[in-house]
Design a protein around this nucleic acid. Structure first.
Lengths: 207, 207, 207, 207
DNA sequence: GATGAATGAGTATTCATTCAT
DNA sequence: TATGAATGAATACTCATTCAT
């Protein structure tokens, strides 16, 4: 947990900021906290990142990049709609598992009314567009079974799991953050997606 | 939105705090902000609520109360499992629509690592227990189709809609906060719940 | 320790203020503290005593009165110089024992550079004059054996005992505030006074 | 008295705090006062000393150190009991004269019921132990002529002189803080100590 | 006679940020 | 490249006091 003194200070600062922002939110973290956690002087944080806000942006930008790449890869796979959607969900979930601070950071942003909100919106928008493309022939544009409703449900089901986990831990049984729980979650999401797709196929066999 | 000078100042403070905490989060709001928004002296906030934290607790307690009542009523309805679950989802959604700041407040709490977390956990836990009772004969305790997975998905689908709304607005088409959108959302949730219940019935025809 | 609700509120306030000022000093006590300890509304303190400062003055005035009376009585006794001085010391000590908050209050005043200082000075001055009268034929006006030096030593020896007591308790053995300790102190003071008087008699047998 | 702008700010702050705390007591001094008196920004006080309390502790610690050294030196001197006690009194008095704020600071502490009280107690306790050692063969452990009674009288006679001085000034004649007055005081204390020792020798001729 | 409500001025402390070195 | 020193503005909170009732 101690910052290894021999790595790039800029990197150490970024990593410390990442962890702290995810745990306590933007307002809950002071530059002093970050500096201490990174094992550098407070002024160094400003030396490398100019302002607290820009530091936060850098933390987020890394994730946006990784997020975009992960979903692009997942989307690029060939196959049936079922297969492609499963891939998308899996890719999303894998990304979240590998970057488990991301959901908390994004939600924090969503709640703060920050000026960064457009960036998040754009990220979500892109994902939404891909989903729309995937489901174009299957789901309607509006209505209870519309892509947009499905999207919110599934995206929320992926993201929210991580945010709710601490509050669920007590009534949950197993640790919701243990690998086994993640696999159960993945299977659950596949089940839900399959149910929706099957019903869409059945009710609109025209596509 | 301007505070009507002739209503109870304690109430005006509470309402202002409610709005501000929901919009900017606990750390993002200063007592000065609250006082200004309520049109009272800063010291008056302390006169009525002693500390910022207690003020926040009062804001939350009101919601917890209302939340509990809403769900209790929804749960008390007789009928088949389908009907009862629909009622539960409807009650939840109605509550959220009527108290549209609540999801943001709760999420803010979940993200801040605040000391109030246990209170939220308890609230979520209660709701989880009711869901478990409702689904006792239908869904297993663990696995992809378990009550706990269904619970996270459905509860998240209800709560998150409000949190994501601002980020979705641009790629959404209609305003996600318009009454019509809420009804579409409600129908969607019913659809999803029905799909899951139907599949559970089919795969475990014991009920 | 609870204030008996049926006594005069003005009295209850005065008593509470007395105890608190003695324990925590003027600045260490808030009007809220006094009101709470007296079991009255904060505004009542102002109703009866106008300001915190005037309340403090009232607390002190009571003591000045009692102090003056006690010493006057002690001084009025006929007899030899030895006897009169013993009486003075005894009267002083009795007064202190009966009003054990007084030394702390006076010292607090002395240290605060308060505007009440002249009042204290006057009280001490009176006592000094009496002592001077008593010793007029025995002790010189200046020098190591002067009345003024004797006065400071003896007065300080009486007053300070109460102020140092809490700090002494640990290395003392017995409780310095127990009655037996007070009697030991009294005997000690008599011893010291007698030693000084005897020496004065011996060295200046002219009086 | 004006802070010379070119000396170490930390030192200037300490010196200003020292003077102010001695004059007005801990509660009577605000950090703003200290900063202004030291000619630095208010935040600088916290930069150097973290909290008002720690600043105060630093002020006191310096004195404790000096106090301890002064008395240790005074005690280390060889000679008869008379000589050693004279040295102790002289050392104490010299220290007080050189550090004339110390008595007021200590008394302020004694009167505030502060949490630092144990530190003062320890300081006084050490001095008491030395006195006990010095008088072991001469004075009893309890009773009117006991070391503990002598200690309180003499220590109080030294310390209190400085605290009473302002209140005495008017009825005193000369300025009690003038060097000549201090020498008169010193001689007086020697006289008193000698009287007590002589009497102890006479009544218990074992030494 | 007594008090609930209200407040302006003040408290200690934290913060993001700048800058000389 | 890195940092110790310094600060203006803000923070939560307390206080003695006033006043309408």
């Amino acid at each position: 947990m101690e910052p290894s003194k021999d790595t790039d200070p800029a990197q150490r600062i970024l990593e410390a900021a990442d962890a702290l922002f995810a745990r306590q939110g933007y307002d809950g973290v002071s530059v002093r906290d970050v500096a201490r956690a990174a094992g550098v002087n407070k002024a160094s944080v400003f030396y490398y990142y100019n302002t607290k806000e820009k530091l936060f942006e850098r933390v987020m930008t890394r994730y946006y990049e990784a997020h975009r790449r992960a979903l692009q890869d997942a989307f690029a796979v060939e196959g049936s709609i079922h297969e492609r959607l499963h891939h998308l969900v899996d890719g999303y979930l894998d990304f979240i598992v590998a970057n488990d601070r991301y959901p908390r950071l994004v939600q924090g942003l969503l709640l703060s009314g920050s000026s960064e909100l457009p960036l998040v919106s754009r990220g979500i928008g892109t994902l939404f567009e891909w989903t729309k493309t995937s489901l174009a022939d299957v789901a309607p544009e509006t209505g209870p079974k519309s892509t947009r409703q499905i999207f919110v449900t599934v995206a929320g089901a992926v993201m929210n799991y991580l945010v709710y986990a601490p509050a669920l831990a007590s009534s949950w049984g197993d640790d919701p953050l243990a690998p086994a729980s993640f696999e159960e979650r993945r299977a659950h999401l596949h089940w839900v997606v399959d149910l929706m797709l099957a019903d869409l196929d059945a009710s609109a066999p025209t596509g």
